[in-house]
Design a protein around this nucleic acid. Structure first.
Length: 485
RNA sequence: GCGGAGUUAGUCCAGCCCGGCACGACGUCAGCUUCCCAAGCUGAAGGCCGCGGGUUCAAAUCCCGCACUCCGCACCA
């Protein structure tokens, strides 16, 4: 199904919708999750926790969204997370000046160059506005971080542009108090904020968005010395080599040098196994090694995990080898010590990160799982049962003859343990169709036979088939059918 | 931010040229019917026609500004 159809589902069924939509001054790039969206997101997050935090014995933290200025001085975001721009004095058009200079003069200027450097080239080469031939004002930087003023003095702080900075900042305490041992992953889920010039496409480019980030702290001398590597050595990953997607095992990838080392191969393996369990079509995914110009300013090697959607290839996870960039710069700025002991040798850990976009991942799962079943005239969201916003519908075949009461009795028994949805109203087929659209994998229906022998029918979303089970078996039936893998 | 196209009920949309009580479908709710897959019948709710201003006796409709959405450019998880 395409973007528009997902959008319609999202609006109609309470997955997500624009923030502040009743007011005209609502800003672009902010969206809310509705009831279905939250339930779905929570389950996705739980799967992430199972497949990374618990599986790899990571530490999970929950840091502040507002962080002090020094953090971003150290991280480089204050200087580096900004685009150099110029404004045309006549027509007010805005240009990325480094790109414009390259376009017009073929001179390559790094975007991190001094602002005066840009001004110099503009005047020397007599660069004018390509739209109206007007003059440019002085180059300045547009920083993508949201600035906030703290307290009555309005002390400068920022909304974090990535969640991982708290992980770096907290690392010394965490490593000491939690008895850390390299390599160790520290994970965090939370919101990040970027003042995008042009947010677009609902969940795909937001100004306020969820990230699930994992920072793996490791000894740079032991990147190929990883006991747990055997867990994924035969896991197949899909990686772009010379513009074609090659399917190879993690072991082959690291042995052949396609991936730099076992540590990176291990985590790309975990990531692949995770996304297989989310129900996205893994055959439409790939890891792509980024060129030097595409990489973030802190990355020395970077692989994007990308998935094909109807909007094109979409980056879901950035896998960056950040080396000692962050710990070194926080050491210099804070004077805190970040070295740790690894088998009695003092080492400044390197960092490999998996930076996952949750909102984008949720969109992709929806798109890859929503299908039109023309034969039965219905739209079905075939989510994995453990990710479904509603686990089970609880329906009375008809309302009268005491069936409604019996249905409510069953509903009360399971509502604390499962996301169950009670529904008496309208034709039974209509109610099944509604459940299909929110992805509920199962429906329990109470009919006249229930009153005689205490059995109910269970209706399966994907096959539409039914079976009859005892009321006393409902709990174990649900438990085994919606369990995480 | 630029260029293009749009914005009318939960959703999809007609009406706009040519100003005069806002149309329809789907969905929702209640009742009847039905007794396992969007059936039928009856009834109901739901709209400051994106926001603000202007023209006019009168604006969804004409004019101006802004916001938002979508598509392209650029940027990004």
């Amino acid at each position: 199904m395409n973007y528009d159809q997902i959008m319609q589902l999202a609006l109609e069924r309470g997955f997500y919708f624009p923030s502040c939509e009743i007011y005209a001054d609502a800003q672009a790039g902010f969206w809310e999750y509705g009831p279905s969206g939250v339930s779905f997101k929570n389950k996705f997050v739980e799967l992430w926790r199972r497949e990374f935090v618990r599986r790899d014995r990571m530490m999970e933290i929950d840091g502040s969204q507002i962080m002090s200025q020094s953090v971003f001085v150290a991280s480089g975001h204050l200087a580096g997370f900004a685009d150099p721009i110029v404004v045309c004095e006549k027509c007010k058009s805005i240009f990325r000046i480094d790109k414009l200079i390259t376009e017009i003069t073929s001179i390559l200027v790094p975007e991190s160059a001094d602002l005066s450097e840009f001004d110099k080239i503009i005047s020397e080469k007599n660069i004018m506005c390509p739209k109206c031939k007007g003059k440019f004002n002085k180059a300045h930087k547009f920083n993508m971080m949201f600035k906030v003023g703290i307290g009555p003095e309005e002390e400068t702080a920022y909304l974090r542009p990535e969640t991982c900075q708290s992980i770096f900042v907290d690392f010394p305490r965490l490593f000491k108090t939690m008895r850390g041992k390299l390599p160790v992953g520290i994970a965090q889920i939370g919101k990040s904020f970027r003042n995008e010039i042009s947010p677009r496409q609902s969940l795909l480019r937001l100004r306020e968005f969820y990230q699930a980030e994992i920072e793996v702290f490791c000894n740079p001398n032991k990147l190929n010395n990883l006991e747990k590597f055997f867990e994924v050595e035969n896991t197949e990953i899909r990686i772009m080599v010379d513009n074609t997607i090659k399917i190879i095992t993690c072991k082959e990838a690291s042995d052949s040098g396609i991936l730099p080392n076992k540590l990176v191969a291990y985590y790309l393996g975990l990531l692949t196994e995770f996304y297989q369990k989310t129900g996205i079509d893994i055959k439409r995914s790939r890891f792509r090694k980024l060129g030097d110009k595409e990489k973030a300013f802190y990355a020395s090697v970077a692989f994007d995990f990308e998935v094909e959607t109807t909007t094109g290839w979409l980056e879901l996870v950035a896998c960056n080898y950040r080396s000692d960039y962050d710990l070194k710069s926080h050491t210099n700025t804070s004077k805190e010590k970040f070295e740790v002991l690894d088998e009695d040798v003092k080492v400044l850990p390197h960092v490999f990160e998996l930076s996952m976009g949750i909102d984008r991942s949720l969109y992709t799962i929806l798109e890859h799982n929503l299908r039109e079943d023309k034969e039965n005239d219905r739209v079905v969201l075939s989510l994995k049962p453990y990710l479904a916003p509603v686990h089970v519908g609880v329906l009375s075949l008809v309302k009268k003859d005491g069936l409604a009461e019996k249905t409510e009795e069953i509903f009360s028994k399971i509502k604390r343990d499962y996301d169950a949805f009670l529904d008496h109203s309208g034709a039974i087929g209509r109610r099944y169709r509604r459940l299909d659209e929110v992805g509920a994998p199962l429906a329990i229906t109470v009919d006249h036979q229930t009153l005689q022998d205490d059995t109910v029918t269970i209706r399966m979303r994907d096959s539409m088939s039914q079976e009859r089970i005892k009321i006393s078996e409902i709990d174990s039936y649900l438990a085994s059918n919606i369990a995480y893998p």
